[in-house]
Amino acid sequence: MPVPSDAHPLVELRGVAKTYGRGEVAVHALKATDLRVYPGEVVGLLGPSGSGKTTLLNLVGCIVEPTEGSLSLDGQTVYDGGWRCADLRRLRLEKIGFIFQFHNLLPFLTAGENVAVVLDLAGYSGAAARDRARDLLDYLEVGHRFGTLPSRLSGGEAQRVAIARALANRPRIILADEPTAALDSQRAGIVLDLLRKVAVEQQAAILVVSHDEKIFDRFDRRIVLRDGRVVEYDEPAHGPAEA
C-alpha cells in the first residue's frame, strides 16, 4: 500500500553490516546496508540461501549485534556503535513480534497459553491475557484450537497460532523468517493476506524473509540480497527519497 510521505520509518538501518568471526574465518554475512520500513508495509526480503536474509532479520530484531552502522526502531536509536537500549528483551516484548520458520510454539503450553504467555510477560492480568488470546485466535480462525497442545495442531494451524502470538502485544514491527516454508501455496497465500491485513489495521511494519516464489508477488516491496549485499531495492511507494 502507498506510504504517506510524512510517515516516519518504523525500521531504519544506516550502513549496518555484520561480520561473523575475525581474520581468516571472517564471514561478511551482511555488507553495509541501508533500509527503511514504514508503517503499513509488508516488505519481502528475498535472495538465495546464505545471502544474509536471516542475519538482516536478526539485526533488526536486536538478536545479533551489528559490526557497523546504526539502527533505529520506531524512532528510537537502538544501536549506534553500541547498544543504546538497556533492556533488549523488554524492547522486543514491546515493539517486535517474531514469526518463525518452524512455528516455535512452546510444546508444553496450549495454543491459547502460547499467545497468553506474551501478554502475561507484558503485565496483563490472567483473565485479560486469556481474553485477548482468545480474540486473536478467533481473528486468525483458530479459536476452536484454544486448549490444544501444539503437537496436535496441523502445520497451518500452528503457524496461525504463532502469528497470533507475534501479534499479541500489538507490536509495531513484525519480523517473519520463512513463515510459509512449511505451508502449501494456498495456506501460504492466506498467511500473507493475513499479514497484510495486520499491517494495514495496526499500522505495523512487516518484514518477511522468503525464498518462496509462490508469494513473491504478494509483497508491497521487495528487497533482494545476494552475498550479503542488497542487489534490488524497491523504493517505498511515496516515501522520501532514499539516501
Partner: peptide
C-alpha cells in the same frame, strides 16, 4: 529451543 524462543519473545 524453548528457552531461546522465550528470550526472543521478551521473557526476562
Amino acid at each position: 529451543k524453548e528457552i531461546a524462543t522465550l528470550k526472543l519473545i521478551g521473557a526476562p
